[in-house]
Design a protein around this nucleic acid. Structure first.
Length: 525
DNA sequence: GTCAGAGCAGATC
DNA sequence: CTCCGACACATTCGG
DNA sequence: CCGAATGTGTCGGAGGATCTGCTCTGAC
């Protein structure tokens, strides 16, 4: 199959806002890909073309890292006039680029990229650029492709979706579904995908709620018992063990086993031979109080032996998907927790099972007081909905707010083209100035966006570099944030984590905004 | 020649 | 991670 | 009883700050 076919489909998908239409185009192309490259005909060393096409349509390269990014695409050769690139050729080129490393690899990679883009037509170049930069903007990613696989193969959507969750890999599922002779066979082939110890499944995600009471409402009838789990501020881990073999995966299904020997050791110490557990890993001090998230992040991102030794991560588990031959995914949480408690011991996340809203709220308050991130409220009768942000789990975090001053605005792009979007936030200094703490564009409705575009145009002050517009520091804005972190980038030495706009405040002047000292007081706890 | 720093990519939240 | 908006689908309401 | 309005779930777009590791570059 030609890359041009994929690029054309991508363009068609981007051109419509209807999800059904997107799905139909993608399904049509998947069917063609399966027909054009029947199994066994292709003697090449590459993967099944259906796998590559599936991945490209979802806006992803098969290679997780190519070393190619936004910056390396700034200057590209002139496009070809005729489409000649095949999907297999392109995949092979990226495969070679992914394999490059060491001195001189940048040059070799650039040469490879230049050859590839030079052979691509204008449309193909656009498509490839989007793939590489992760900015395809066709309004369809993995989820739509999954639906399209169902449509193309005739297998039920639920079955396809479940297979993807369990396999953690859309391409493999696409092949199984589309290579089947008929819808019945496709469904059967997909039904055979099950949980395999050693192969990561997509983790279940949580919705969020502003407080515990709202979370309880979301979960269902009044008074029903729920599990209120402590929410730890670390990184999500999925730990698989089969005998002596332990594997640790991240939320995005990356295998980080070599980086976390202490988690492997902990897994080996648990009282079961085979299991798949879901949890969170973080750095804690001797008393069990969590260290700042940055320490956990630094430790888990590091590959160096010294860094590994400097900070230790502790795993805490909150769910069990499989234990000693028994798949638990479809069992209610109540049963999964019983199994988890039987093996995890001190590595189980603290939780309270209750039907009392006040007790749940008190548990939340206490968790936060102990330095934890919040709680996750869970329905006891819900199964493990792999990969879905189902209503079975609802997280609750405390919300802090500050009144800050807008120092500058950035011009929006994409959907926000023509608007002033991303605002620079400042806190009041002791000597009448303002200290920048970060930026945000989140939380703005279209209406606010329109209003602020006008407002900041009026306040515009001084030269702009075409992108950032400085404004007179007069407008106060109420900002919500999750926490304060240490920063080397900002002059105040602190930055806000997940800042978002609540509202603009016209009842306060800049002189009444919060001070940098107030902001710093959040850093401690 | 060595080494620190700049930039970038890719990951976490 | 966060939030908003858009679409698809389910449910309720009004003629 | 059926079509229109209203609500709910799900998805995508867009981008924030941080961290590490890699490669290249420029100063000495």
């Amino acid at each position: 199959m030609l890359l041009d076919d994929v690029a054309a489909t991508s363009e068609a998908v981007a051109a419509t806002r209807s999800r059904l239409a997107k799905r139909a185009s993608i399904a049509a192309l998947l069917r063609r890909a399966a027909e054009e490259s029947p199994p066994g005909r292709d003697p090449g060393p590459g993967p099944d073309e259906v796998v590559v096409v599936t991945s490209y349509l979802a806006g992803e390269l098969r290679q997780r890292r190519t070393g190619l990014g936004w910056a390396s695409l700034r200057s590209l050769p002139a496009p070809a006039t005729e489409p000649t690139l095949t999907v297999a050729t392109v995949d092979a080129a990226f495969e070679r680029m992914a394999g490059l490393s060491g001195p001189g690899s940048d040059t070799a990679r650039a040469a490879e990229a230049s050859a590839l883009f030079g052979a691509a037509t204008e449309r193909e170049q656009r498509f490839l650029r989007g793939l590489v930069a992760g900015e395809l903007r066709q309004g369809a990613l993995d989820a739509v492709v999954v639906d399209a696989i169902a449509e193309a193969s005739g297998a039920p959507v639920d079955v396809v979706r479940r297979a993807v969750m369990l396999r953690g890999d859309t391409g493999a599922v696409a092949v199984a579904a589309l290579r089947a002779p008929d819808p019945g066979a496709a469904g059967e082939a997909l039904g055979a995908f099950g949980l395999e110890v050693g192969r990561p499944v997509r983790p279940m995600l949580a919705q969020s709620a502003p407080d515990v009471a709202t979370a309880l409402e979301k979960l269902g009838p009044d008074g029903a018992e729920v599990s209120v789990d402590t929410k730890l501020d670390g990184i999500r881990i999925q730990v698989h063990r089969a005998g002596d073999a332990v594997r640790v995966f991240t939320r995005s299904l990356d295998d980080i086993t070599p980086r976390v020997p202490e988690i492997v050791a902990a897994a080996l110490a648990l009282d079961a031979n085979t299991f798949v557990l879901d949890g969170e890993a973080l750095a804690v001090d001797a008393s069990g109080t969590p260290r700042p998230f940055q320490e956990t992040a630094s430790r888990s991102a590091s590959q160096e032996a010294e860094a590994l030794a400097a900070v230790e991560l502790t795993p805490f588990f909150f769910d069990a998907l499989h234990v000693d031959g028994r798949d638990l995914l479809d069992d209610p949480l109540r049963d999964r927790l019983a199994v988890l408690d039987g093996i995890a011991g001190p590595f189980a996340v603290g939780r309270l099972v209750t039907g009392d809203p006040d007790a749940a709220a008190a548990f939340f308050t206490d968790a936060v007081a102990r330095g934890q991130e919040g709680v996750v409220v869970k329905a006891l009768d819900a199964p493990y909905a792999a990969g879905r942000r189902g209503a079975g789990w609802v997280k609750v975090k405390p919300r802090h707010t500050l009144d800050l001053v807008v120092l500058a605005v950035e011009r929006g792009s994409g959907r926000r083209q023509g608007h002033l979007s991303n605002i620079h936030l400042g806190a009041r200094d002791s000597d009448g100035g303002f200290v920048m703490l970060g930026k945000t564009f989140k939380g703005m409705t279209d209406q606010m966006l329109a209003w602020q575009t006008e407002r900041f145009t009026e306040l515009a002050d001084g030269p702009t570099d075409g992108y950032v517009v400085k404004v007179r520091p007069e407008q106060v804005v109420e900002i919500a944030f999750d926490g304060v972190q240490r920063s080397t980038r900002y002059p105040g030495g602190v930055a806000l984590r997940f800042a978002r706009v609540i509202r603009y405040r016209d009842d306060k002047t800049a002189a009444e905004a919060d001070t940098i000292d107030t902001v710093r007081s959040y850093a401690a706890g």
